[in-house]
Nucleic acid binder design. Sequence first.
DNA 1: TCCCAGGGGCCGA
DNA 2: TCGGCCCATGGG
Length: 247
Amino acid sequence: MSKRQSILSLYEKLISRYGPQGWWPILSKANKKGFDEKGYHPSLYDYPKSKLERYEIVVGSILTQNTAWKNVEKALLNLFHKKMFSPESVLKCEQKFLAQVIRPAGYYNQKAIKLKHITEWFISNDYIISKKTERFKRSEYFKEDEVNLLISEVRSNLLKVHGVGPETADSILLYAYHIPTFVVDSYTKRLFQIHKIYTPTGKNLLDYQKIQKMVHSVFNQKDYVSKVKIFNEFHALIVKEGKNSVN
DNA sequence: TCCCAGGGGCCGA
DNA sequence: TCGGCCCATGGG
């Protein structure tokens, strides 16, 4: 089997085994119509729909770094309950206080600094990026060059932000803005190795880029929305499988 | 008690 | 460039 076929069959296997995962969870919408008690929304791919929902995903992507999602939920709930959940209030808030509010997520001093930085980025970039992606989602034709330009611009912009590395940048692109890019994590590297799709070089960044490139070339749909959907599910399913195989 | 979880920054060689 | 170290809580 070619690597291309291996990747395709891995995706098919995972989606038929686990079904739609409903990523990225939006905790503030938990138990609302279409959402479960943790804010997952299986088969609803048009979320996030609002600025605040996008901000929740951006914040979550920082808080979850090297951290179990369960602890991120506690930190998010703290932010909601303290009525601190908006870009403005996070910026306004004293850093030490912010750190205490997000304490359950761990690395709280580091993450308070990171949240300040990503929030500044969000305030100056959210509107323009979501406008552009709305246009792609509506258009009938997949303008590949334009989309690739958008990806590389926003991505390199994000990577300059303190606290944002490749995985966090791609998570924000894909899950907050519906920009079709594949998120690579340690589960992905392990799973691809097991399935003999990829032999690790040992160099973290290089592995990341090579795996991402492979997946991008396999799913070359001309339809923007279905591409976003596949990358959304594929990463979420790999995380599901990764957790499943550990236990 | 130990180990890991939906990483990334920084520093010295 | 790259390896090693640091950040830190909570659950199994």
